[in-house]
Each structure stands twice: as C-alpha cells, then as structure tokens.
Design a protein around this nucleic acid. Sequence first.
DNA 1: ATATTTTTAGACAGACTTGTCCAAATCGTC
DNA 2: GACGATTTGGACAAGTCTGTCTAAAAATAT
Lengths: 217, 217
Amino acid sequence: MTPAIAPDIAVARSHTAKRLSVLDAAARVFCREGFTGANIDLIAAEAGVSRQTVYNHHGDKENLLVAVVREITERINAGVFETLATFPDKPVDLELELIEFAVRLNQNCMCNRDGKFLRKLLQTEGERYPDLFAGWREHGPAKTWAALAARFARLALSGWLDLDDPDVAARQFLALVNADLQMALIFGDTVSEEQLRTATTNAVRCFLRAYGKPRPV
Amino acid sequence: MTPAIAPDIAVARSHTAKRLSVLDAAARVFCREGFTGANIDLIAAEAGVSRQTVYNHHGDKENLLVAVVREITERINAGVFETLATFPDKPVDLELELIEFAVRLNQNCMCNRDGKFLRKLLQTEGERYPDLFAGWREHGPAKTWAALAARFARLALSGWLDLDDPDVAARQFLALVNADLQMALIFGDTVSEEQLRTATTNAVRCFLRAYGKPRPV
DNA sequence: ATATTTTTAGACAGACTTGTCCAAATCGTC
DNA sequence: GACGATTTGGACAAGTCTGTCTAAAAATAT
C-alpha cells in the first residue's frame, strides 16, 4: 500500500514545514525591519534554518518577499470571507448581533498577526513595489466592501436599515469600527478584548443611530 | 547700523537654508526608503549639498531622523491647531459648514505632504523607535480629539447636536471623514479635490444623521 | 582686501550584506 | 545497512554604506 506516494508525502511534509517556517520568520522580519533592513541571516536564524536553505527554497530576497505577501494576502482573504459568512442576515437583536459580527471582523482580519503584517508591508513597500499588492488591492478591499454592502442592502430591504447608498454605508461601518483602534493599530500595540468590545459597541451604536430603524415586524 | 547682529543673521540665513534643505530631502528619502534603506549620499544629493555638510549639521544618521521627525510633527501640530480654529462654532447651515471644515482638515493635515510623511514614518519606524514619536503620540492626537470634542460639546449645548460622549463623537467624526480615503492614503495616491469633497460630504451626512438635531432657534 | 567660517570633493577604513560554492552531516526510505 | 535528497556550516568575492579625515574652494564679515 501507499506504494509510490508515501515518500513524496513525507518529503513534502518536512519540506513544507521548513518552507512555512521560513515564510513565517520572513514575514516577522520584513515587518520589523522593512525590506532593505531585513537580513537573510536573521530570517534564517528566526526560522531555525540555515541560510542556504532559505536560498534553496525561495531563491532571491525579492522572491522571498513576493512569497510572503502572497501567503499573507491569501490567508487574509480566507479570513475575511469566512467572517463575512457569519453576518447576521436574519437578526433578532440587530445591535447586539452587529457588535458580535464587528468584533469577529476585527479579531479575525484586522487585529491578528496577518492583518498587522499586511498593513505594515503595504505601508512600507506598497509604493516601491506596486505590482506586489496590485492583486490584493483590486480583489481585496473592493470585494469586502461589495460583499458587506450587499448584506446591508438586504437588511434595508427587510426593513432593518434606512440606506441611501449601501456601498458608502459599508465603508463607513468599517471606518467606524476602527475609529478607536487607529492608534493601537499604527503603533502595533495589542488591543485587549475589552477595548475591542467598547470600540465596536461605540461604532455600531453610531451606525445604527444614523441608519437604523425600529425593529420591523 | 546693525552693528553686531547682521553677520549672525546672514550666516544664520544660509546656514538655515541648507539645514532646511537637508531636512526636506531627508524627509523625502526616509519616507521612500525607510530608515535603513535611506542613503546619506542620496539625501545629500537631493538636498543639493555635499555629504559632509549633512554630517556637519546633524551629526548622526539617527540624529537626522530625530530632527526630521521633530520638524514634521511641529508643522503638523501647527496645521491642526490652525485648522481647528476655523471650526464652525456659530453655524448657520451646520451641514455645509461642517463639510467645509472637514475638507480643510483633510487638506491641511491629512492629505498634504507632511501628513503623508508623518503617517509613513510612524508606520515604518514607530515600533523600532517608540521614543521618537512618544511626544507626538501623547500631545498630538489626544489634544486634537479633545479640542474637537470640546467644539462638539458646545454645539450640543447650543442645541445643534445630541451627544452621549463628545470624545467618542470626535473620534468617529475623524474616522468617517477618512473612510473613503483609506486606500488612497495607504497607497500614497493623490486625492482629487472632487474625491475629497464627496468623501467629506458622505461623512458629515452620516455624522449628522447619527447626532444631528433639527436646527435650533 | 583680508581673515574667518562654511562648504566641497574625494579618499579611506571598517563593517555589513547578498548570493554562491562546497564538503560534511543529517534525514527518511528501501 | 545503503542510498538519494535535503540541510548545514563555513568560506568566499563583490558590492554597499557609514562616518572620519584632509586639503582645496567658496562664501561671508570686517
């Protein structure tokens, strides 16, 4: 049994393990030091791997950055998609459920490690390597906004919200949700669960004051 | 006449001119390349000055970064203060005047060169040199928020707004005003006058839907 | 016109990086 | 135990960058 694939799998596993370890360390170091300041020796050391292995896996330093960005954007997109699926389409207590949803959004997409990495890499290398993030830029936020806008539009149809422009409302929702977290996000501070809850509560209350309607029958 | 001060003034002028030229070029290069990636030769060339002059004026590369950050934060603070003074304390048409105010805020503080530089430097070097921005962090946003909150509180007292927490409202106002500009700001794109106007209009409309009251007598 | 300060260009040592090469060691499979 | 692939540590050349030093040039004040 498992006549010819077992070796490949085993090899692939250790291979992949090291590959991921390198990507992980590279993400950390690139974010801390920036692309120019990142040191391949340091990345290798943090990955628990020899420098030659880094070169074996990814070739170039620039190539390594590309791989890191691809990895992170994929994970981020997956997280966003997954969280969007938990939107309260048929709410009972809209305020409460929107707060829960926004908390999830922040935890899974903005405040976690990947979110921090993407934000920082975007900021530090976005202008120098525009191609790197072109894909994310086009498919990432635009799709998120559109998906969220569609949900809000449906809530408006079922009488929960009073919206002029669902797209604008979606962007405003996201902006409000981050209003109290801006500083922490910029400085890389960790946000406590409680901070996140009150920030999100403030945001949803404001959003519903602007666009909410009394509970429909 | 001008017996003993004239020389000092003249020297100071050229001295200061070169000093500013260096700071300006350094700000550009630091923002483009990050601290580690910034090249003193390049800064000198962009400033139209010899490298030795850079060292004469600011000593260290790290020292130069400190000087740049100090310069920019001072200019930003001045701009914020100046713009806050134009807040519509006694509005006639609140929506219109808040929009005008928010447009000024964005143009003078967020979307101009200094705003872009501060944001980027903060993002790229904020974690590595926390002391650098400690002063700004403490006195910058906190003061802005407080000042804006005080204005909103006064509007609430005079019957224009219905606020629970003026501080939260102030942060939300700023967040809303930037909602549609996020992507452009991150990628360093220039925002057109028209983009800025519609973004700001959307923001103020939402803010007033949440917190506005019919015009008081 | 002269004296003083500032600026300039270039050379320089020391340190650090990247990317390559190679022989020895390690690992998992047959 | 033997085999093939992968990993390792170290050495290496080529390049870059910082910060210092020097003597000449330019600018400025008296």
